[in-house]
Write a protein that binds this DNA or RNA. Structure first.
Length: 600
RNA sequence: GCGGUGGUAGCUCAGCUGGAUAGAGCAGCGGUUUUCUAAACCGCCGGUCGGGUGUUCGAGUCACCUCCACCGCGCCA
C-alpha cells in the first residue's frame, strides 16, 4: 500500500490530473468574472502547446473575438486579468500573436504535479473521471471457428485490446466480447467432410488445421448443383434443427477452435469475458424481426422476399438495402448484429458499444447503427453510444495484401513465432552475455511487442505496410526503442540500489534547473492529454506518439545529464524524473497491451 | 454510377477535429563514449502538403471541382 498523500504542496490545492482541462475550466469562469458578453458561449480551446510557446495554449479567444468584432488581444487581456488566483499562482500567462494565450507552468507547479502523480494508482485515479460508472462492451478479434487465425485477424485483436485497456483505465467497466463466427452455411460442408475423411491422428495433433483441411475437401467435393452439395445442406439443416450428432460435432469444432485461439490470445495478453458468437443469438432473432416489422410505420419491409431496411433520409441507403433476413427465411449477419446490439444494451446495460472490424464493413455498420437508433427509439430502449472502430489492411512492402512467399495466407501463430525468432537473433547479437533463457524471455516481449506496437503506432484508418526491419528497429517510433528507454531507467535504479519513487529520494529533490530536466518534466505532465486524445478518437496511436516523444525527451536528458552524481539533492531530483518517466512509459505501454522489461 | 478511406521530404509515417516558421524515423552527410545500457544522443541536407477554386484574421486540416490508389454497394461476414 502507498502512504497517504502528502499535504505540503506549494499551492495547497489538490493538483488536477489534466491541467489543460483544468485551465479550460478556469478560463471559462474568467470569462464570466470579466463580464464578457455572451460568456457562456466562449470556448477556451486549451491544448498542449509547442514547448517554445509554453505548456498550454488557449486558441479560443480568436474565434470568440472575431465573431463579436472585438479585438482579440484586448479580450485576452481581460481574461488574464480575471484569472483566478489558483491559476496565476501556477502559471505565467502571456498574450502572443493575434491573440493566443500561452500558459507556462511555474517550476513549483510542475513539480507539484509530478509529486502528486507518483504511482499507477494515482494516475488511474486522475484518469477515471472520463468513464467512471459506465459500462462499455468491446467487440473485437471475432475470428471464424474451425479456421486458424491469420494475419488479417491481427489488427482487430491488437487495437481492440488497447481500446479495452484505455477505457478501463479511464474508469469504465469493460466487457470484452469475442463475437465468434460460429454459425453459417460452412458448417454443412465441414460436417459432410468430417464424417467421411476425418483423420483422428491429425485431429489429435492439430485439430484446427485438420478442420481447415476438411473444410477445403468438403468445399471442393460439393460443387453447385451437385448431389453432394444437397447432402451437405441436409447436414446443415440437421444441425440447425438440433440433431444430436451434428450438434455435438459443431460443439467440438467450437471448443477446439477456442482452445487454439487462446494460445494466440495468451501471447497478446488478451482474455475475453465472453465468447458470444453468432450462434448465441439464434433464439433471439424472432424478436428482432417482430419488433422491426410491428412499428408504425414498419422499420423493416419485405423486398424480393427478403426482409430489409431502407433509410429514406440517407442519400445512399434509401436505395441500398440493409438485409436482415434472407428470402429463404434464414438469418444473416444483419439479423445477428441487431440481436447482439439489443443483448448488449439489455443484458450488459452498455453505455457504449465498440465494434472493431476492418474498414470494408463500414457500410454494414452504418446501416446497422441507423437501424438500431430507429428501433430503440420506437421501442423506448435506452440507446448506448455506438462506435465502429475501423482499420485499414495490412499489406506487404508492395502495397498488396500480405501473403506468404507462395501466395498463401500467413497464419498468426507463424507470424508471432517469426517475430520472436527475429527478436531473439537481435538480442543475442546485442547482448550475447545474457543467459539464453533471459534472451528468450526478452525476445518474447520485444518480438510480440514490436508486432503490437507497429499496428498501434500508425493511424488505424490507413493501410499499414508490414516490415520486420521497421518494427524491430531500435530507432524511431518502435517498440524496441520504447522498451529500451524503459530498461535504461531500470538500469540506473539497479546500479544505485534504489527503488523508483522511494520516499527518501522524493523528499531530497532540489528544484529543477537544467533545460533537459525541464523539457522532460514538461513532457511528463502532458500524459493526460495523450490519454484524452486517444480515448475521444478511439485511436491509440495518439498515445504511441506521446510515449515516443517522452522516450525521446528521456534519451536526450539521459545523454545531457548524469543522474548518479555526487550532489544528493541533484541526484534526487533527477531520480525523481527517472521514476516518473518509468511510471509513465510503463503505464502507457501496458495500456497498449505491451509487456515491459528491466533488461534487454 | 453512388459511396468510404487514403495521397504530406527519395522511402515509411505523424500532424491532437481551423492556429504560430508543416514534424519524426530511415536513407545521405558530419559530430559525440576514460561518465548510469552508443540498441543512444547532437547537427546538416531534404516540402508547389496530388492539382485547382473557394470560405476567413488564419487552410495540410473545412466546402466544391478534378486526378490517382485501395475498398464497399441484395441474400458471405
Amino acid at each position: 500500500m502507498r502512504r497517504p498523500r502528502r499535504s505540503w504542496f506549494p499551492c495547497g490545492m489538490p493538483t488536477a490530473f489534466n491541467l489543460a482541462a483544468d485551465l479550460d475550466t478556469a478560463l471559462q469562469s474568467a470569462a464570466h468574472a470579466a463580464g464578457l458578453a455572451d460568456a457562456a458561449a466562449f470556448a477556451p480551446e486549451v491544448r498542449p502547446a509547442d514547448p517554445k510557446h509554453g505548456d498550454y495554449q488557449a486558441n479560443g479567444v480568436l474565434g470568440y473575438a472575431k465573431a463579436r468584432k472585438l479585438n482579440p488581444r484586448g479580450v485576452a487581456e481581460q481574461l488574464i486579468a480575471a484569472l483566478p488566483a489558483s491559476v496565476t499562482a501556477d502559471y505565467e500567462a502571456t498574450i502572443a500573436g493575434p491573440g493566443f494565450i500561452n500558459f507556462t507552468l511555474k517550476p513549483a507547479a510542475l513539480v507539484a504535479w509530478l509529486r502528486a502523480h507518483d504511482s499507477a494508482e494515482h494516475l488511474a485515479a486522475g484518469a477515471a473521471a472520463a468513464h467512471a460508472g459506465q459500462t462499455w462492451v468491446v467487440d473485437y478479434s471475432s475470428p471464424n471457428t474451425a479456421k486458424q487465425m491469420h494475419v488479417g485477424h491481427l489488427r482487430s485483436a491488437v487495437i481492440g485490446e488497447a481500446i479495452c485497456r484505455l477505457l478501463a483505465f479511464t474508469g469504465a467497466t469493460v466487457i470484452r466480447d469475442n463475437h465468434l463466427g460460429d454459425w453459417g452455411t460452412q458448417f454443412g460442408k465441414l460436417i459432410y467432410a468430417y464424417k467421411r475423411w476425418a483423420d483422428p491422428a491429425a485431429l489429435e495433433a492439430d485439430a484446427i488445421a485438420e478442420l481447415e483441411r476438411l473444410y477445403k475437401l468438403g468445399n471442393d467435393a460439393t460443387p453447385d448443383g451437385s448431389p453432394e452439395l444437397e447432402e451437405a445442406k441436409r447436414e446443415l439443416v440437421k444441425l440447425q434443427t438440433g440433431d444430436p450428432e451434428n450438434l455435438a460435432l459443431w460443439q467440438k469444432f467450437s471448443e477446439v477452435s477456442l482452445a487454439a485461439f487462446q494460445t494466440i490470445y495468451d501471447r497478446l495478453g488478451i482474455t475475453f469475458d465472453h465468447n458470444l458468437g453468432e450462434s448465441f443469438y439464434n433464439d433471439k432473432l424472432d424478436r428482432v424481426y417482430a419488433e422491426l416489422t410491428a412499428t408504425t410505420p414498419p422499420i423493416a419491409e419485405v423486398s424480393e422476399g427478403a426482409l430489409v431496411v431502407f433509410h429514406p433520409e440517407h442519400p445512399r441507403f434509401k436505395t441500398q438495402p440493409f438485409l436482415i433476413r434472407k428470402a429463404d427465411g434464414a438469418s444473416n449477419y444483419g439479423s445477428t448484429d441487431l440481436a447482439t446490439a439489443l443483448y448488449r444494451t439489455e443484458h450488459f446495460k452498455a453505455d457504449g458499444i465498440v465494434v472493431v472490424t476492418d474498414f470494408r464493413q463500414g457500410d454494414h455498420f452504418e446501416q446497422l447503427f441507423l437501424t438500431v437508433k430507429k428501433w430503440f427509439a420506437a421501442k423506448g430502449y435506452r440507446l448506448p453510444e455506438l462506435h465502429h472502430v475501423t482499420f485499414g489492411a495490412v499489406t506487404g512492402e508492395d502495397g498488396k495484401a500480405l501473403k506468404t512467399r507462395d501466395g498463401g495466407t500467413i497464419k498468426l501463430k507463424a507470424l508471432l513465432d517469426e517475430a520472436e525468432e527475429r527478436a531473439y537473433a537481435i538480442v543475442s547479437e546485442k547482448n550475447a552475455e545474457l543467459p539464453e533463457a533471459e534472451r528468450r524471455a526478452i525476445a518474447q516481449v520485444v518480438g510480440i511487442g514490436a508486432v503490437q506496437y507497429a499496428d498501434l503506432s500508425q493511424n488505424r484508418s490507413s493501410n499499414y505496410v508490414f516490415s520486420w526491419e521497421k518494427m524491430l528497429a531500435l530507432d524511431g517510433n518502435t517498440a524496441p526503442y520504447l522498451l529500451y528507454a524503459v530498461t535504461r531507467v531500470h538500469s540506473i535504479f539497479r546500479k544505485l540500489g534504489i527503488t523508483p519513487g522511494d520516499a527518501a529520494t522524493e523528499s531530497a529533490a532540489s528544484p529543477l534547473e537544467t533545460p533537459a530536466e525541464f523539457a522532460l518534466a514538461r513532457k511528463l505532465v502532458k500524459f493526460p492529454n495523450a490519454l484524452d486524445t486517444a480515448l475521444t478518437t478511439l485511436r491509440p496511436h495518439f498515445l504511441c506518439i506521446y510515449l515516443y516523444e517522452l522516450a525521446g525527451e528521456f534519451s536526450s536528458f539521459y545523454n545531457a545529464e548524469k543522474v548518479a552524481v555526487d550532489d544528493p539533492a541533484v541526484r534526487a531530483r533527477r531520480l525523481q524524473l527517472c521514476a516518473r518517466t518509468l511510471l509513465t512509459l510503463e503505464t502507457g505501454l501496458h495500456l497498449l497491451g505491451l509487456r515491459t522489461l528491466t533488461r534487454m
